[in-house]
Each structure stands twice: as structure tokens, then as C-alpha cells.
Design a protein around this nucleic acid. Structure first.
Lengths: 344, 344
DNA sequence: AGTTTTTATGAAAACATTTGCATTACTATT
DNA sequence: AATAGTAATGCAAATGTTTTCATAAAAACT
């Protein structure tokens, strides 16, 4: 008889305590204007006394939205994604949605599995990173009747709504900067490009630009590193300690660039005197490091925010058409590059 | 009549197409051993053809677990938390759970709100950071019948299960190192300690140690910075440019320490020659920066992993008692500190 | 061949809600 | 005073599953 724990507290318990029917309790939550203020107060009191918490699972069964959004990213644990995730989260949170998150470690099978789980939970919308996904994944998404958006990538012909930047252009910008400064001995430090359209696009932009400038890549100077500052540092050390070293290194992203900066320091090479470095991303810390990292700014925060807004509005019906947003990117000149007038 | 979209595909649709009852379909999912292999095949085929996806909301209504875990963190967008989140996520993922995540930006009201939302979704477990939470929050959690765990903090008397490290000890260790090296002119760079027990505990450990050593803090050298490398850098620059500067700076965490390193560089101060720096955390990048950051290692990955395991097992019933795990912490000597034999 | 056991399936109740429809009790209008 | 209109509430059906119980069919015993 006492109202402490044990007795499960559902809408019936509340109704009983407030001396009304369950319909009235339900209405008092969902259409408060339809119920007498006095009654409402009684109900509120009962709710508080019992610590009642509505069961969204039961609501969801009525075609009512679940209020959740599924977000799948390659990894949470890295500068870039952490920032978009945060922005995306804040943005959808403001619209009242709750995020389900999963990371797949660049394994597209796991991505598919995560997506399926989300759909079992009847998420109202889906967000993913980039446009490299399995055929199955695309089909799965298209089969559902819920909006989906991809972040970080931008192309006019993307299969899903996208909000991001033109990664190829980012590569072009970075390369043009180095080339424009007179560098011809250029090293590349990129993450694996398999199943990673962002990295691949950047790389292709770089290669095109280099080719146009009549510069050809020396295989020894074209190095790959996983997305880790430790890996990047040791890869860069190997490159810098070899007898012949480039005058400039272009990195697929700022984390790798950071690794190069530290590697140079450890090799007693002065930046930018002995080596120029350019990154892509402009992550947190890139402007604070000494000297400040010259990089192509990708507006992570804005991408996350816009994507969150877009998705939320697509769900609530305030926005109906799909959309492709390309954010502006720009090269930020800081202190890691200097003109190079060497013989080539 | 056609099986393309529109017609909602629920368990009835599958049953119809496979020519069995819905009970059989349900069973074929939940207790496959009870249904004839031939029938199962028919059902599987129908499922695939229709693209049926089970509705966990409907399952959840039967007291079946929702398969979700709610995780609330101060912020996603920072080195420390990103790493625990990743580890925690991987760990509970392996147990089949899906994560709901929210960040509150060090606002305990928002934390409470996020928790409520999670509970509406009937999460099976709850994970939060640290032990500074509102009274309401604690009461809310205790009222529910689901396991909860806090990460990053450790104390024998914590109100909830905790898996973390003794932050006070971390402060002690950091301070002892500096003191042991002969430093007496010590500056402190800490984040705001309001609603942040981790920072507060570290600070108190530092203060105690300094006091015991007969060193008193100079207010001008006791500076505060938000948890941002940019802020930390400029705060440190102000400190380092003042006429009197400490011989060593102790930072509340590695991000702030990184700011100090950059600040020193920008002030043309050599580390460790002109200034010793010690951090707390040992985040990614701390060992790669040049010189490597001397810091107190907090095992973020392990904390996340253990907490994920503990929570998962508490949910599945494999583990029943609450638990308090204190991970080992240790000072890692790298290159940012050197003995100091100055007059004080 | 008859009986028991096992295997496979279906019917219907249960889960915690929302909502359309019906009902009651007022208030306003004539 | 009778009627119409409105406000507030309850009843019961519906939502998509799982599960208990009952039943039928098949297999294994006598």
C-alpha cells in the first residue's frame, strides 16, 4: 500500500493516485490544453510523488516519433570527429532529440550492423560520415522512410543529403600553397584511403595539382600513416632522417601534420626554416602550436551544426527536400611554411 | 498487393508472406531452436524480401531490456572524454548494447535533464563522469532499478559504483615530482573546480603537498583556465611574461599543459631549461610532443573499458554487487622537467 | 495398433501507452 | 425552461511485439 518502489509506477498508478482515468493522464502530458487546470495539478502532484517517468517505447508504438537520431562515425576518439559530434549533438539536442551513437573503426560491415541496430530502435533519422558506405548500407537507408544525412563530404551527385566540404578542393588548396611557395620536393603523409572518401578526395586533389605543376611524387616520399599522432611522428621521422628529404610535407589532416611538427623537432629541423608543413582540417590546437600550423580550414563545428539542424528539420517536417551544402574552405597561413628557392 | 514500401512491414506482414502465424515468426527470432528449420528458412526469406526490421520499442514493452545504455559526459569534444567514450562504447558494444549519449557542458541541470530523457527511453544502465551531481540527479538514479556507474573518479565512499582513479593522489604525485626536483616557485594552472570533483581533488592533493613542503602559493601564480588549449596558452603567456615567473608550472590536465608548452615556446623560453612543466592525464599526443610531457598517467582507455564491462555485466545479471575500482596511476617522467637549484 | 512423448505451431492475453468516440455536466442562448 | 453548444472526462480499441497455454501432428515406445 505504501508508495515506495517495488509497485511499478506506470500511467495506471498515476491515474489511480490522481483519481482520474489513464486517458486523462495521457492527455495531460500530450494535450494539456484539453484538461482542466485543477485536474492537471492533481496529476502533476501524483506524478511527482510517484516519480513517474513516461515510457517512450510505448509511445513509439503509436507511430509517434521515438525522438532519437542515430549517428555512426568511424571513430569518436579523434580531434576531427569529436568536434563534429559535439556540434551535431548540441544541435539536435536543441530540437529535443536524443542521440544514439556508434563507431565502426573504418569497418563498413560494422557500420551496417550499427545502422541496423539503430533502425530496430526506430530512430527518426540517421547521420553518417562521408560517402564511402557499402551497397547494402545505402540500400538499407533508402528502404526506410526516414531522413539521412552525411557529414564531412560534399558533392553535387551524392546519393544522400550531404553537408560538408569539397575535400578534393581542400587538397588542391593545400598543394597550391606549397607549390606557389616554390616547393618542388614535396612529401605526402596520408592516412589509408580505403573506405575513406575524404582522404581519397584530398589526395586526388593534391596529386592533380602536383601533376599540373609538373612535379612528380617520389615513392619514398609518399608515406602512409594511420590516423594517430604517434604513428605520424614515427613515419615522419623515418622520412626526415633519410639522406634525401623533401623541402615540404603535405599532410592529409592536421593530426598527421602535428606528428610531422614533432618529428621535425626531434630531428633538430627548424620549421619553417628547414621544412615547410601544411595540414588539412584546422583542428583544435593547430593555431596554438608553435609555430602555428598552416592548414586548410574545414569548419567542423559548422558542419555538425548544420547537419543537425537539417536532419532535425527533415524529421519534424519543417524541411522536406534533400539538400547538399558545401561549406567554404580556405587556406590559413600561419607559421609552418616559407618560400623555397632551391635547385630542384 | 505489391511488396514495395508503403504497406508497413511488421511481424504480420512477415507471417503472412511466410504462411505462418506471428507467434512462429517471433519465436524464430527469439528461440530459433523451437522452430522447424524449414519454417525458419521460409521466414528468413520473407524477412529479407520485405526488409523487415524488428521493433525494439514493442519488445521493450514486455519488460525485455531495451538494449541501450545512457552515457552523460561534460563534453565530447575533448581529448580526455573522447578516449573514455570510445573505450566505453567499444566495450558495451561487444555486449550488444547501443549507446545513447548526451553532453551537458558542466551544467548539472542539463545533466539531470539528459538523464530523464534516457530514462524515458528505458535505458538499461547509466554511466556518468565523476561524482559531482545534483542532489536531484542522485535521487533520480537511486529511484530507478537500473545499474549506474561513474567514471574518472574513485573513492571508497562514493554514492554510486565508480571506476576511475584517485584524483587527489594524482595531484600529490605531480606536486611531489616538482617539489622533489627542488622547485619552490611553483605556478598552478587549473580549470574551474566548480561542479568538477576531478579537478578539485587534484588541486587539493597539490595544495596539501605544497603546504607540507612549506611552499606557499602566490596568488598571481595560481591561474585558472577553461578547458581549452587556446585559453591555457594565453593564460600561461600572461604568467610567463610577468616580471616574476615560477620555475615550474603544474597543470590540472594535459591539455592545459600543452598550452603552457606552446606559450613557453612563444615566449622563447626553453623547456625544461627555463621552465619545468608537469601535467595530469597523459592524453594522446602528450608523449609525442617535443620534449615529451612529464605527466601523471590516468588510464582513460582502461577506465572506459572496465566501466563498460562492469555496467554491461550488472545489466545482464552476471554481476550483482556494486563496485569501486581504483586504477593505478603513475608519474611518467619525460622531458619537461628538470632539477632546480635556485635560491628561493 | 494403441499409447505416450516430443516437436511444431497457433490463439489470445499481456505489455504501457494514445486517441477516436461517447458521455456527462456545465454554460450560454433563446 | 428548453435547447444548443462547449468543456472535461472515460471507455475501449489500437499499436507491434512476446509468451503462456492449448492443440495438432509426428515420432517413439509398448
Amino acid at each position: 500500500m505504501s508508495d515506495n518502489k517495488v509497485d511499478k509506477v506506470d500511467i495506471f498508478a498515476v491515474a489511480k493516485r490522481a483519481n482520474v482515468s489513464i486517458s486523462t493522464v495521457s492527455r495531460s502530458f500530450n494535450h494539456p490544453e484539453l484538461v482542466n487546470p485543477t485536474t492537471r495539478k492533481k496529476i502533476d502532484k501524483a506524478v511527482r510523488k510517484l516519480g513517474y517517468i513516461r515510457n517512450r517505447a510505448a509511445q513509439t508504438m503509436h507511430g509517434i516519433r521515438s525522438g532519437t537520431i542515430g549517428l555512426v562515425v568511424p571513430t569518436i576518439d579523434h580531434a576531427i570527429f569529436a568536434e563534429v559530434i559535439q556540434a551535431f549533438s548540441d544541435s539536435v539536442d536543441a530540437h529535443g532529440f536524443t542521440i544514439m551513437i556508434a563507431s565502426h573503426g573504418y569497418d563498413l560491415e560494422r557500420e551496417y550492423a550499427a545502422l541496423r541496430k539503430f533502425l530496430e530502435h526506430r530512430v527518426d533519422g540517421l547521420a553518417l560520415i562521408g560517402e564511402d558506405h557499402s551497397q547494402e548500407t545505402y540500400e538499407l537507408i533508402e528502404r526506410q522512410n526516414i531522413p539521412a544525412v552525411t557529414m564531412w563530404n560534399y558533392s553535387e551527385t551524392s546519393r544522400l543529403s550531404c553537408i560538408g566540404a569539397d575535400n578534393k578542393m581542400a587538397g588542391v588548396l593545400a598543394a597550391q600553397h606549397l607549390v606557389g611557395l616554390g616547393h618542388r620536393d614535396i612529401g605526402l603523409l596520408f592516412p589509408p584511403t580505403k573506405d575513406n572518401d575524404r582522404a581519397r578526395d584530398r589526395r586526388s586533389g593534391v596529386q592533380k595539382t602536383l601533376l599540373n605543376a609538373g612535379i612528380n611524387l617520389i615513392p619514398d616520399w609518399d608515406v602512409e600513416s594511420t590516423y594517430s599522432i604517434a604513428d605520424a611522428k614515427s613515419a615522419a621521422q623515418r622520412l626526415l632522417r633519410s639522406p634525401q628529404r623533401p623541402s615540404g610535407i603535405l599532410c592529409g589532416n592536421d593530426v598527421l601534420a602535428m606528428g610531422v611538427l614533432y618529428a621535425a623537432r626531434s630531428c633538430n629541423l627548424d620549421i619553417p626554416q628547414d621544412l615547410s608543413v601544411v595540414g588539412i582540417g584546422d583542428f583544435k590546437g593547430s593555431s596554438e602550436v608553435e609555430p602555428g600550423l598552416t592548414t586548410v580550414r574545414l569548419p567542423a563545428w559548422e558542419i555538425g551544426r548544420l547537419a543537425g539542424n537539417h536532419l532535425s528539420q527533415s524529421i519534424t517536417g519543417d524541411l522536406t527536400n534533400e539538400q547538399r551544402v558545401g561549406c567554404d574552405i580556405v587556406l590559413i597561413e600561419r607559421g609552418t611554411c616559407k618560400p623555397h628557392f632551391g635547385i630542384s
